[in-house]
Write a protein that binds this DNA or RNA. Structure first.
Length: 876
RNA sequence: GGGUGUUUAGCUCAGUUGGUUUAGAGCGCUACCUUGACAGGGUAGAGGUCAUAGGUUCGAAUCCUAUAACACCCACCA
């Protein structure tokens, strides 16, 4: 069969993926083996694969494939997240494009649309993960809105409610006027924006005086219920106990005192709007102020805004500023740089707003999670630097607003039966709720029709925080075999952007509902940025199409490209050139196989000396590298592991081993060498497989006849044998000698085809890997002696050995002399620095013997080299 | 405003508890090499006063202090 000279990933990827699936290699059921479990960070159900997914799923696949090969019962659980707000926003936008407003639909109608959408696009991303090569157990695919997942969520809600951890409260929340829902604090991002600081005059009642107040949101004056000054602010002593009139609305409000006010900001005088500012709310409660809500849910002004009713908040701001100006109450406007909270999803400016919401008390839940990460190290964060961020967040944790004014999600299982504040019950089913409601109300004639369920749904993260448990049904059936076997899981691979949203909360839920950690290691990947350092995003249009990359370079190449420079926690500056590097690497390995495959094998041919030396060395070197690779894997230094495999294959295997065992053109190879090299090649494929599963599987089936159902993917990860370091060091020296010869050829313009003679001042026994040096140095003969006195030629020195190569033409003596002089100068300088150290009494007194011995050896070596150089120089 | 981290070759990064030659890798670059596995290749080479200034030490890229730039996280300064 003719093998093409270029490796083509197309065709083989789908072939092997199908093969793996047909043979259920990724399937996992509990058995007697030790489990190795990873749960996928569930991507949004309607999402499509982007660079971030590619990065963290490649990592997970590499880890799980290696675990599988090492004999663990590897289980990678896939799934998707319903992503409440993101998906709902997408569905709303889609409907809008079709001319349908969400407000025209009933909840049920809207949900039908949403489910249709989910059916259509849901799971697309999972198909894309298959293209990347992800070895998930697809039979386990979960969706956070699956009935059993939802039931788990409701059970948890009810449990926490009954424990008194979930409560309903009228609180200041982050309101997204566009999605018309609340957001958790973590869903609000603060952007630095240039705004205006408006200085507004508030007339003092019963006086001609005014107080000037600075605000960035003048429209909120409609809701002002006090003006606050610092009790020790001398400028305002005379105003204590007085009242002011709110401009435009003419409400009379008191001047209160509180040391919360910063005297040095603005005018040192603060307007208090308890309904629309979290701090003002605290002030308002402390001073028993009225709360006047001035906004509708879409952030237009409501009936409390008088003549401004119906205006959008920004329109209202403009008009109010105009009106103030007309009335002469606008003193000045300063530009002001400040942080404005916007919705992570809709980018709408967040409006603090008071409303009834559900909250989860976090402090007690956080305690075991703090301990596990910061004290006992039961859970490790990689890289460790995230511990600090984690600590800071956990120690300042606030109650979690878990209700969302959305429809897409788990509906809050609270049922109202009356108009009173406490006229509700919490239950998993409406039937149970009815019974409870009857008990609570004492009205046993209460019917289910009189019961109304809460309109809100739960925050998406309230379902995903259970993910490592709920995918194994560990909430509903805490004793089931699966959860007992697979939980706790091993690794979690995700981005640091959801450390608090998700990771911290999973840790809390793990301890709360299983009494145990959910995973042992958290590998936090960096953000994928473009080569200019900008974060890759759809908006910026700088994110390459992930699937197109796979199409262009092949999945293996893309995986390698991503892994090559992605240490844990470091941002990855992605450049397509990395994928090209991966593709070149695939091609290199492909061609290594072509070379081996093309040899004619002879049974009764002795192995060449060079081949024997090389195979012997490579075996040692392979084991050394494998030990290093394993060590890096254990430290989750995946890119380092890959780099050593990359060099092992490209340099050591291809450039050295194959070049050394390669027979002369057209000549056959002996069977022993052939079989050994094939075995070594196979071991290379094994350790490369987690990174490049498709290419290696293809080649693994080429290099030998395989039984049906055999695959590299389920073969074994090699175990490192002991290796002979001396052998490796000797070969490294041989490599240096070969490099010296090649360099010499280049300098003297001697063709690589032209054979040369080498003189070296050592004995044959001392000289290791001679056959290799002869072969790759293009040497006809080595003389273990000094060259004849009148020989013309040149020399180079390594480790105090002098290598002389005769040349036809005489060397330019001046050039040679200059070279030697330069080398001598350097060596003398080096010796001087070493001697300076050695003559320092305190060094000799304080440094460990080992270090001193080393310096002495350096000095001795340098001295020897100097005498060698001087001898050579004197010869001129 | 508070905190954390980064700053090493043109680019992206290693550098493990301070001590093997006056610092390494990959990519890129330069020169030469192509009917021989691979030009998606080979060989060799150039390239860094380890951000800056002090300090500790026999010895600092590595530890300490300050400064600067950048990144991220947290925070209610209207």
């Amino acid at each position: 069969m003719e093998i093409p000279s270029k490796f083509d990933a197309k065709g083989i990827e789908s072939k092997w993926y199908a093969f793996w699936q047909e043979n259920n290699f990724f399937k996992s059921v509990p058995d007697e083996r030790e489990p190795y479990t990873i749960v996928i960070p569930p991507p949004n159900v309607t999402g499509i694969l982007h660079m971030g997914h590619m990065l963290n799923n490649s990592l997970q696949d590499i880890i799980i494939r290696r675990a599988r090969m090492r004999g663990y019962n590897a289980c990678w659980v896939p799934g998707t997240d319903h992503a409440s707000i993101a998906t709902e926003a997408k569905v709303v936008a889609k409907l809008k494009a079709e001319g349908i407003e969400k407000s025209d639909l009933t909840r049920e109608e809207f949900l039908t649309h949403a489910w249709d959408w989910t059916e259509e696009y849901g799971g697309v991303i999972l198909e894309q993960l298959k293209k990347l090569g992800c070895s998930c157990d697809w039979d386990r695919t979960k969706f956070t809105l699956d009935p059993e997942m939802t039931e788990s969520v409701l059970q948890v809600f009810v449990k926490l409610y009954r424990e008194g951890r979930i409560y309903r409260g009228y609180r200041m929340v982050n309101w997204d006027p566009e999605a018309q829902t609340t957001l958790s604090d973590e869903e609000v991002i603060y952007e630095e924006k240039k705004g205006n600081l408006y200085h507004i005059a508030y007339p003092i009642v019963g006086s001609n005086e005014q107080v000037i107040i600075a605000t960035t949101r003048p429209e909120t004056l409609l809701g002002d219920t006090a003006v606050c000054i610092h009790p020790e602010d001398e400028r305002y002593y005379h105003l204590k106990g007085k009242s002011v009139q709110v401009p435009l609305v003419n409400r009379i409000i008191p001047i209160i005192e509180d040391d919360y006010v910063a005297m040095d900001f603005g005018t040192g005088c603060l307007k208090v709007t308890p309904a629309h500012d979290p701090n003002d709310k605290v002030l308002g409660e402390k001073h028993k102020l009225e709360q006047i809500d001035i906004f509708n849910p879409d952030a237009s002004i409501n009936e409390n805004g008088g003549s401004y009713q119906g205006l959008d908040r920004f329109k209202a701001r403009k008009i109010i500023v105009q009106d103030l100006e007309e009335q002469g109450l606008l003193v000045k406007v300063e530009t002001h740089l400040h942080k404005v909270g916007v919705s992570e999803r809709t980018k709408a400016v967040i409006e603090p707003r008071l409303s009834d919401q559900w909250f989860l008390k976090m402090e007690e839940l956080a305690n075991p999670a703090i301990k596990a990460v910061l004290e006992t190290n039961e859970i490790e964060l990689l890289p460790e630097k995230f511990k600090n961020t984690y600590r800071h967040w956990m120690e300042n944790i606030r109650d979690w607003n878990i209700s969302r004014q959305l429809w897409w999600g788990q509906r809050i299982p609270a049922y109202y039966f009356g108009t009173g504040k406490e006229d509700y019950v919490v239950a998993i089913t409406p039937e149970e709720a009815l019974k409870l409601a009857q008990q609570k109300s004492g009205n046993f004639n209460l019917t289910s029709a009189e019961l109304s369920q809460d309109q809100d749904v739960l925050d998406t993260w309230f379902s995903s925080w259970l993910w490592p448990i709920s995918v194994f049904d560990g909430i509903r059936n805490p004793e089931n075999e699966e959860i007992q076997y697979y939980y706790p899981t091993q690794d979690l691979v995700t981005g640091p952007d959801i450390l608090f949203f998700w990771v911290a909360r999973m840790i809390m839920s793990g301890y709360a509902f299983r009494g145990e950690k959910p995973f042992s290691k958290v590998y936090l990947t960096g953000l994928v940025r473009d080569k200019k350092g900008q974060k890759m995003s759809k908006q910026l249009g700088n994110s390459p199409d992930a699937l197109q990359l796979i199409e262009d370079y092949g999945a293996d190449a893309v995986r390698v490209g991503l892994m090559l420079s992605s240490a844990a926690g470091n941002d990855l500056l992605f450049d397509e050139i990395l994928c090209q590097q991966g593709k070149n690497f695939a091609n290199k390995i492909w061609n290594a196989y072509r070379l081996i495959e093309g040899w004619e094998i002879h049974d009764n041919l002795p192995a060449s000396k060079a081949a024997q030396e090389a195979l012997n060395w490579y075996e040692n070197h392979f084991n050394k590298t494998l030990a290093w690779v394993d060590e890096n894997f254990d430290k989750y230094r995946i890119s380092d592991a890959l780099m050593s495999i990359y060099k092992l294959l490209w340099e050591d295997f291809c450039s050295w081993l194959l070049e050394l065992i390669k027979p002369e053109y057209g000549q056959p190879i002996d069977r022993e060498t052939y079989e050994k090299v094939l075995l070594l090649f196979e071991n290379n494929l094994r350790i490369l497989h987690p990174f490049m599963p498709f290419l290696t599987e293809e080649l693994w089936h080429f290099i030998a006849e395989r039984k049906p159902g055999e695959a590299l993917t389920v073969s074994s990860w090699p175990k490192p044998n002991v290796y002979d370091s001396n052998q490796i060091m000797d070969f490294e020296f041989a490599q240096e000698i070969i490099g010296g010869i090649r360099n010499f050829r280049k300098e003297k313009n001697i063709s690589f085809k032209e054979e040369i003679t080498l003189y070296v001042n050592t004995s044959k026994d001392e000289f290791k890997f001679g056959a290799s040096i002869i072969k790759l140095g293009g040497i006809a003969e080595i003389h273990f002696s000094s060259p004849p006195k009148e020989a013309m030629g040149g020399s180079f020195r390594l480790n105090n050995l002098e290598f002389f190569i005769p040349t036809k033409a005489a060397e330019d003596p001046e050039a040679e002399k200059e070279k030697l002089t330069l080398e001598l100068k350097y060596t003398r300088g080096f010796l001087a620095s070493v001697e300076k150290k050695l003559s320092n009494e305190r060094f000799v007194k304080n440094a460990p013997a080992q270090v001193i011995d080393l310096e002495r050896k350096k000095a001795a070596d340098a001295l020897e080299k100097i005498s060698l150089l001087e001898k050579s120089l004197n010869a001129f």
